[in-house]
Amino acid sequence: MMKKFLLLIREDINRLSQFSEEEIQQDIAEMNSWVEELIKFDSFISGEPLENDYQLVGKQVETDGLFIDSKEGISGYLMIQAESLEQAAAIAEQCPHIIQGKITIEVRPIMEIPQ
């Protein structure tokens, strides 16, 4: 049975803000090409790039887990379907920007809540 997964795309927001329009379009074209592959294999559900502006609301939670470097932020997301977390991670590893070392992708299973 297929499950849904959220792929959170994390990258250096400072680096992104220095991109020329041409570099932004090139990055978008590379990601769109990858998404077209995901669509062919019926893995893609949805996704969007995010603008660089953001505002944190609420209390910062102390964790022992993953720390987000202050210059790193979430620049976009994809929702995909896969059979397991391992398969979803394997799909994420095929992203051209992962292969080029430009980004990190956090792969999170979406919790199914019984109706």
Results as ranks from 00 to 15, higher is better:
residue 51 E to Y: 08
residue 65 G to R: 03
residue 79 M to V: 15
residue 41 F to Y: 06
residue 21 E to T: 09
residue 102 K to P: 02
residue 88 A to R: 00
residue 100 Q to V: 00
residue 39 I to V: 14
residue 39 I to D: 03
residue 34 W to I: 04
residue 72 E to W: 09
residue 16 L to S: 09
residue 64 D to R: 09
residue 104 T to M: 10
residue 112 E to W: 10
residue 40 K to M: 09
residue 71 K to F: 06
residue 26 Q to C: 02
residue 97 H to Y: 06
residue 20 S to H: 07
residue 60 Q to N: 14
residue 56 L to F: 12
residue 108 R to C: 12
residue 104 T to R: 14
residue 46 S to C: 09
residue 63 T to P: 05
residue 29 A to Q: 09
residue 2 M to Y: 12
residue 66 L to H: 09
residue 24 I to K: 11
residue 78 L to T: 01
residue 83 E to T: 13
residue 47 G to N: 03
residue 92 A to V: 01
residue 31 M to E: 07
residue 23 E to C: 10
residue 107 V to T: 05
residue 54 Y to T: 11
residue 62 E to P: 12
residue 67 F to I: 12
residue 49 P to E: 06
residue 27 D to L: 08
residue 28 I to S: 09
residue 24 I to Q: 14
residue 98 I to Q: 06
residue 96 P to T: 04
residue 3 K to D: 04
residue 114 P to S: 13
residue 110 I to F: 11
residue 115 Q to P: 13
residue 100 Q to W: 00
residue 51 E to K: 14
residue 103 I to H: 06
residue 54 Y to A: 13
residue 103 I to P: 02
residue 59 K to I: 15
residue 17 S to T: 15
residue 44 F to H: 07
residue 113 I to C: 14
residue 30 E to H: 04
residue 52 N to F: 07
residue 27 D to Y: 02
residue 23 E to I: 04
residue 65 G to Y: 01
residue 78 L to M: 10
residue 49 P to M: 11
residue 106 E to N: 07
residue 41 F to S: 07
residue 31 M to I: 06
residue 87 Q to G: 05
residue 29 A to M: 06
residue 1 M to F: 12
